[in-house]
Amino acid sequence: MKVVVLVKCVPDSQLARSLVAPKWNMKRCDVSEIVSELDEYALEEALRLAETHSGSVTAVTVGPARAVKAVETALQRGAESGVHIMDDALAGSDVVATAVVLSAAVRRLCPDVVIAGMASTDSGTSLVPSMIAEMLGWPLLGCVDEVLTDGSVLRVRRERDHGLEVLEASMPVIVTVTDRASEPRFPSFRTILAAKRKTIHSWSLSDLGICSSEVGWDAARTSVESAVERPSRGAGHIEKDEGHGGIRLAEFLLERNLL
């Protein structure tokens, strides 16, 4: 079974993040970039599928030179090979352009299953997987908590506000995974060493038969006029419990008319 996992480097959400003029794109720098946390769950499900069905996992990313870190991390955790799509023309690409590039890469790799995280932790649109599904004419099983297969059909379980669903789809199929899925594994010394011998293919737009006018700033279907940082909530009164913490809490609620 061939599994492709889509991975992405993002600015660390635990640190201050900002949008920069004039085009209000995300401020990015090498040091604070990490693999989008939600992609780790996608990778874990991909590895589990490949392990139980003697398959292999290929990690795919799009972005400038530093973005390859996302693929390297996936290789260290057990992915077999990687693809890094890099091209100067890609700068400023929107979700549609990203989906055009990734769907072309998936077409070339011919996997049975594509797995992605439920969202990235930066732009967080959750749109790329459904756009790839549409471009390839595949079904999408979105926001699932567990992925199972007997080798021919993919079965997923997902929890929604209104209840539980078990769905099945024939392959090829694209799946997105929530952070309620299996706990992602850590790389071991052995897998880190093994990763050094694995290949990362670097593909350009022409390798994928994509015209540069389809991507980048000029192809973007939206433009940002302005961005303003919202004032953050300040801290109020914090005190240590000296034995009357609960009473103090109730008094605060009374004072604020919340009882």
């Binding site: 953050s232 909530r233 300040g234 801290a235 109020g236 009164h237 914090i238 005190e239 240590k240 419990d241 009357h244 913490g245 609960g246 009473i247 103090r248 809490l249 109730a250 008094e251 605060f252 609620l253 604020r256 009882l259």
Partner: peptide, 23 residues
């Protein structure tokens, strides 16, 4: 605590029941 209007540094298992009683 950085975004709380009111905060108690303490054990929720003693603070919350005491708050329920006081309410």
């Amino acid at each position: 605590f950085g975004i709380a209007d009111f905060g108690i540094v303490g054990d929720l298992f003693t603070v919350l029941p005491q708050a329920v009683e006081e309410i």
